[in-house]
Write a protein that binds this DNA or RNA. Structure first.
Length: 308
DNA sequence: AATTTGGTCAACCGCGTTAGC
DNA sequence: GGCTAACGCGGTTGACCAAAT
């Protein structure tokens, strides 16, 4: 014979929201045992709770556990979630292990209610992290604008950096079995091979004087999640040879806000697509990814991924 | 002021995995 | 090794609240 039946099959076990009294009983019981739960199945009986063990575990791990950090997600946490989701998918429990004090349930909820919608607004598929085809994009904006908006929202990266990130994600998936951070350069070289074989090209961002011809007022929109300090960080720490300067990040941010102001639901007048076409520079080749190895931002992302 | 709509998040459900027998 | 229940995870639901109409 196997184990005895699960308590959840018991009739009369209470369901629904927990009362303060129940919370107190559960916390006191677990604390009395020095945080050692033992088995969840037997806990309700010994603690004197008319609840399923499963319900007790959920209440403790998602709400009552003292290690849980409450409050809004920070910009850094949001970026980390996006980065981890790009390589792990909906592995919320695994993602949660990389965010101290956050539960899988909390991250999952935050993803579904905030991040997912933001990505969709920017025309980025929240499942694949790839740009949506124009007919599936919410805004039908020119490709370069969508890239720039997504890039700005991912923390002030420019368009080229975002494309590199996505290619990097693909690379990390393929080298997932190779858990060795010392091969960083070798794997970046492999990424170069991928880039070269795919003939990847990125559009240049707009020049500053070209930006000036756009309408004023787009800087006030804060719907994107590129916090100013992240951009400032680029200004002070920008040693990344693979990305352009702070000016480019700022332009990307401006583009993001511009994109928002041209959203169909917005009252702002829409510019015809050809107005944007004249603003785009000819395509340029991606830089050598090996050069990114010296950049702390990229190095961190790579090494984090190796640790997963 | 009443009703509708949309957002948030705690909690439940069901399934795959793990582990006891 | 096969069966079975416990556990853990991801998907989904529904209560609650605030904003919009």
């Amino acid at each position: 014979m196997g184990r005895s039946p699960c308590c959840s099959h018991d009739a009369g076990v209470k369901k629904g929201p927990w009362t303060e009294e129940e919370d107190k009983t559960l916390v006191e019981h677990i604390q009395k045992r020095g945080g050692n739960v033992g088995g969840w199945r037997g806990l309700p009986k010994t603690a004197g709770l008319n609840r399923c063990g499963k319900s007790c575990r959920l209440r403790w791990t998602n709400y009552l556990c003292p290690d849980i950090k409450r409050g809004n997600f920070t910009e850094d946490e949001e970026r980390l979630i996006i980065t981890l989701h790009a390589s792990l998918g909906n592995k919320w429990a695994t993602i949660a292990t990389h965010l101290e004090g956050r539960t899988d349930n909390e991250i999952k909820n935050y993803w579904n209610t905030h991040i997912r919608k933001k990505l969709l607004r920017m025309g980025v598929d929240p499942v694949t992290h790839q740009q949506l085809p124009p007919n599936q994009s919410h805004h039908h904006l020119p490709e370069a604008l969508l890239w720039a908006a997504a890039a700005a929202s991912l923390g002030g990266m420019d368009t080229g950096a975002l494309m590199q990130a996505q290619l990097l994600q693909q690379l990390l998936r393929t080298i997932g079995s190779n858990n060795d951070a010392t091969n960083l350069v070798a794997n970046l070289a492999a990424a170069n091979a991928v880039l070269n074989s795919s003939g990847s090209m990125v559009p240049n961002l707009l020049l500053q004087d070209q930006m000036n011809c756009l309408q004023p007022g787009y800087l006030c929109n804060t719907s994107n999640f590129a916090e100013q300090h992240v951009v400032q960080q680029h200004l002070t720490n920008d040693t990344s040879p693979g990305t352009s300067s702070f000016a480019a990040a700022e332009q990307a941010g401006q583009l993001c806000n511009t994109a928002a102001s041209f959203a169909p639901h917005d009252a702002a007048p829409q510019l015809p697509a050809q107005e944007f076409a004249c603003l785009l520079e000819p395509m340029t080749e991606l830089p050598d990814l090996c050069s990114l190895e010296s950049d702390s931002f990229w190095k961190e992302i790579l090494e984090d991924s190796y640790r997963l």
